[in-house]
Design a protein around this nucleic acid. Sequence first.
DNA 1: ACCTGAACACCGTTCAAGT
DNA 2: ACCTGAACACCGTTCAAGT
Lengths: 226, 226
Amino acid sequence: MAKKGSESGKGQRREQSLSREQIIQAAIALLDESGEEGLTFRALSERLATGPGAIYWHIANKNDLMTAACDELIGKTIREASLDGTPQENIRLLGLAMFDAMDAHPWLGSALMHAPQQSPMLHIVERVGQQLKAMGVPKTKHWISASTLLNYILGVGGRNAANGVYARANGLNRTTALDAIATAWLQLDAGEYPFVRSLAAQLRMHDDRKDFAAGIALILKGISPN
Amino acid sequence: MAKKGSESGKGQRREQSLSREQIIQAAIALLDESGEEGLTFRALSERLATGPGAIYWHIANKNDLMTAACDELIGKTIREASLDGTPQENIRLLGLAMFDAMDAHPWLGSALMHAPQQSPMLHIVERVGQQLKAMGVPKTKHWISASTLLNYILGVGGRNAANGVYARANGLNRTTALDAIATAWLQLDAGEYPFVRSLAAQLRMHDDRKDFAAGIALILKGISPN
DNA sequence: ACCTGAACACCGTTCAAGT
DNA sequence: ACCTGAACACCGTTCAAGT
C-alpha cells in the first residue's frame, strides 16, 4: 500500500536503475502472495517504486513476464534435480521436483499450461527425454513417451493450480475445501454417480504428492517394453 | 457489428424473452468463432440484441457461463460415447470423444482445466471409473487410475488449447506453426538439447489424435495388473 | 538511456430506472 | 419479472514529456 514515497514493501534497493531480473523476482513474489490475478503492472510497479510504463522498458508484455518467471523457476528446478539414480528414479525425482515447484508456486502449473512451446517446457522435455533414452526406450517411442509424461505432469500442475485458486477465492484451507467437495460428492444421485461417490472417502485422505508419483510410476510401467 | 437495431448476426429469435439456454448457445458460438478472449459480456449481449446487464438476470457471472458452456458440450460428448466394446475400448473411445470435442472447441480444454471440481469433470470421472471397475481394476487402485487418466486427458486438452491460441494470435495454420517450432528446435544448441532436436522431424509429422490415443493405451497398459 | 504518469481502449459487474 | 444502459472500478499498453 506504499504510495510512491522513499520506501516500499520489499527490497527498497533502487540505488540502481531497474533491471529485468529485479522485475522478474518481484513478479514471482507478487504471484506467490496473491496468485495470478494479483500480478498487475500497477501493483508490480508500486512494489518497485516506479510507474507502470517503466516496466515496459525491460519487459515486452505480460506474457513475456510470465514466461520469464516460469523460466526462472523451472530452470532452477531442473538444475537442482538429481541424476544419480536409475533413469526411472531420475524421471520420478524430476517429476517430484516439478510437483514441488508447482506446489510452492501455485500459479506455475497454470502458467506453463498457457505457454506451450516456450523455453521452460523445452528444458523439461530434454531432461525427461535423456532419461527415456537411458531407459532403453526405442527411438520410435521417444515422442509418445515424452509427450505422455509431459501432458500428465502439466495436467496435474494445472489442476492443482485451479484447486488452489478455488480454495483461495473461497477462503478455504485444504482440509475444509476437500471436506466440502467430499460432502458434495456424497450428495450426488446414487444411481447415476456410484463411482464418484465411492471415491469420496479417498478424496478426504489422499496425498497429492504421493498420487502424482504413483501416476508417474504407472506411466513408466506402460512405457517400459516388458 | 450490429448496433442494436431490429436484427443481429445469428438467431434473430427474440420474440420470447432471453433464456439461459439461449445465452449458453450464443456463448459457445462466440467462443468457437473468436476464442476465450472473444467471449465478452458486451459482444455476447450485442449478439443477443440486448444490454450486458440483461445476461446477469439469467447467469451468475462469467465463471458460471463458462461452466455451463462446458457442461453442455461434455454432457453431449459423454451421452453419445459408445459403450459397446471392452472396457479398454470404451475408455479409449471416450477419451477420443473428449479429444474431438476439445479439438472442435479449442477453448474447452483450457476451460475444463480452470473449473476443477465442477459437474463437467464429474461426468467424465464417473464414466471412466465405471469402465475401470469393469476392467477388474482393484478397488485400491480406482483413485490413482482414474486421476491419472483424467490428468492426462486434461493435460492434452489444455496444451492443445494453448497451441490453438498461439497459432490464432500469430495468424498461423497448423502446418506453418509446426514448421516454425521445428525450425526453432533445430536451431537449439546441439550439446544442450540433443533429445529435443532429435524430435523435430517427428514434430512435423505427428498426428495429435493418434498420439492422444497412444498415450491412453500406454496408461491403460500401466493400469492393468499383468 | 531510462523513467513518469496521464490517457486510451478495453474489461466484468452493478444498479437505478424503466416496461 | 425482466430488460436497459450508464456508471464503477478495474485492466494491459502506449506515448509524449521529462531527466
